[in-house]
Amino acid sequence: MKFISRAQWGARPSRYALAYIASTRGVKIHYEGTHVPETLGRPDAHDQCAPRVRAIQASHLANDEEDYSDVAYNALVCPHGFVFEGRGAHRKTGANGTATLNSQHYAVCALLGSSGLTEPTDAQLAGLRDAVEWLRRDGDAGDEIKGHRDGHPTACPGGPLYAWVQRGARRPGGTGDTGTPAQRFEPYPGADFFKRSPRSPIITAMGRRLVAVGCSAYREGPGPQWTEADRRSYALWQQRLGYGGADADGWPGRTSWDALKVPNV
């Protein structure tokens, strides 16, 4: 998964504390519902995606009628397949239409419009699947994948994207909820690896996972160089798993590493 954390895309702080949600029935797919320039879908236009996500958050925070706590979605997916962290896992969405609907499903928004860029790219469909699987893994989302219009009177997520949902929300050239290949994860590199203060893409992947699960002590990054911020972040993960004392010292062990599920690099 090509994951971009809130810190990485420049999210503003939430206005209010985001409501915790233990689990959901699944995920609802959304689109922007406004004009999205076709140029956003060009392969060389990814640098326009983070500013667009920031603009969506700003518009939600400025919406006095809805009084949003933050960007309404748990994640947003650009045409290049990157998953932008929104409210994140275990946080109730504000996008599904009513308080009841917001409690039943997470919300993932594709950067697609009702005019201009209306057809999802293959990379975007793959990114939407990545977002769904992330919310299942880290947010206890159930198996349902629905459109915003399921249960709420709206055109969202638009004809092309809703047709994809109705066909089973399958990966391009692959499978959907049946037969999807298992995610491959980075094997535990050993305790000595971390004690050598390594510089490795494994450290970047680990840091991104820690950010994704809400265990971040980073002020910037994460990056490839092992730092004290990595150790403090990992200690938060160990505490999340119930470890204490010397067992939560921030140095990765095999059991906690396997539980973190760092994607292969």
Rank of each mutant, 00 (worst) to 15 (best):
K2S: 13
I4T: 13
Q8D: 12
Q8G: 05
R15C: 04
A17H: 07
A22Y: 10
R25G: 10
H30Y: 08
T34L: 13
V36F: 03
G41N: 11
P43Y: 09
P51H: 12
R54T: 09
N63P: 03
E65P: 00
E66F: 11
S69T: 06
V71Q: 11
V71D: 10
A72R: 15
A75Q: 07
A75L: 12
C78N: 14
V83A: 01
V83Y: 05
V83C: 03
R87N: 06
G97W: 00
L101P: 03
V108F: 07
L112H: 13
G113M: 14
E119M: 15
P120A: 07
D122Y: 04
G127M: 02
G139M: 01
A141S: 09
G142K: 02
G147M: 08
C156I: 12
V165E: 01
Q166D: 12
A169E: 07
P172S: 06
G173C: 06
D177Y: 04
T178I: 14
A182I: 03
R184Q: 15
P187C: 11
G190C: 10
F194V: 06
K195L: 13
A205D: 04
M206A: 04
G207I: 00
R209G: 00
L210Q: 03
L210F: 08
V213I: 13
C215W: 00
S216N: 06
A217N: 06
G223E: 11
P224N: 13
Q225V: 13
Q225A: 15
T227Q: 09
D230F: 00
Y234A: 01
A235K: 05
W237F: 14
Q238H: 10
G242Y: 05
G244E: 12
G244A: 13
A246W: 12
A248P: 02
P252H: 12
L260R: 02
P263H: 05
